[in-house]
Write a protein that binds this DNA or RNA. Sequence first.
DNA 1: ACCTGAACACCGTTCAAGT
DNA 2: ACCTGAACACCGTTCAAGT
Lengths: 200, 200
Amino acid sequence: LAAKGRSPAERSGASITDKRRLILDQALALVDERGLAAMSMRAVAERVGLTSMALYPYVGGKDALLDGLVDLLHLELGADIGNPGADPDWRHRLRALGRAVRALAFKHPGAFPLLLNRSAAGASASWLTAALRGVLHDAGVPADRIPRLARMICAFLLGYTTGEVTGGLPAGPAPEATEQEFEEDLADLVRLVEVAVRVA
Amino acid sequence: LAAKGRSPAERSGASITDKRRLILDQALALVDERGLAAMSMRAVAERVGLTSMALYPYVGGKDALLDGLVDLLHLELGADIGNPGADPDWRHRLRALGRAVRALAFKHPGAFPLLLNRSAAGASASWLTAALRGVLHDAGVPADRIPRLARMICAFLLGYTTGEVTGGLPAGPAPEATEQEFEEDLADLVRLVEVAVRVA
DNA sequence: ACCTGAACACCGTTCAAGT
DNA sequence: ACCTGAACACCGTTCAAGT
């Protein structure tokens, strides 16, 4: 699954950081396939073609590895909605953001709950907040209300989608929200922002 | 810490289920004091005064024990806001609900994230949803919108407070929301409900 | 420089055996 | 009936040793 039998630091590529990334990618793939509980240092190492002790210089322990996965998820989220070519309609952008978060959750159901469970320290972590604040700014929300409202929406999106993926939200009849329900909920979110503008 | 040197099933009390509860209580206390990672079967057993193998008949494995903790949290939440003597003002009740959830999070920061991370299957899990639906009903939200809106608010409250307790929400300057910020956010939540009524 | 073997102190869980 | 001892297959992590 990893690159074919390459020797370490082959051909003097920038491999210190590349290898770290390779390990993180394989760890995420493992979590996607077999769940978070199956992600042991030994299992990750085997997937990469090493022994567990060899991972430590690159990812520094299991806890740090989990933080690395959180970073990876944030990066993927950032890539899914690139800043360039942004829709001028903030309503569209807010919906797109919501859909991107939800898509990430379903793509990585095992790892996604880490986002809300581990502190969002990394620089890439603030991407979602930045995007939300941009949306609120364009919506005309007064500047002093933007940080709090962005935080609220972030909490809602992560809580909602985490709940879908873990079953943590006591649902009605269906365990998961349907696509359509989610779209309606996004519409309510848009309305909340519109109210925040009018109240100003 | 547990009851003084009682023999098992002492005096033929209803001890099968009592002992289970005792174990769960001690497990929660352990998580409160030393964190979720420190909660091993062996550590819980030692706290109760048994060996780890003796726990299995009562709580049935570690995974089931964690589900038991989730149930305990839901029960505590239900007790914190008893149905009787409910404030007739739905706005007050909604705020009280939010504060109760937040208080629970800070009382059990280690265990609280389990609520969103594990499926809410137990009967006591639906308590929060039921209370929210009651609030929305009294607010005059049309019946067909209540389930979805209750789910949204639940997702928001759990996501928000989990994020506070874990640091999982990329915050602004301060890591945690202040009490006052939270109150303002609750006010926004009330407004969201008011909008849901008007749109009807 | 990069990796491994061996070892340590822990896990969750089982099952036969104790009282 | 209720509990334990011993054992199994795993963990995360360290460190001296290999190449």
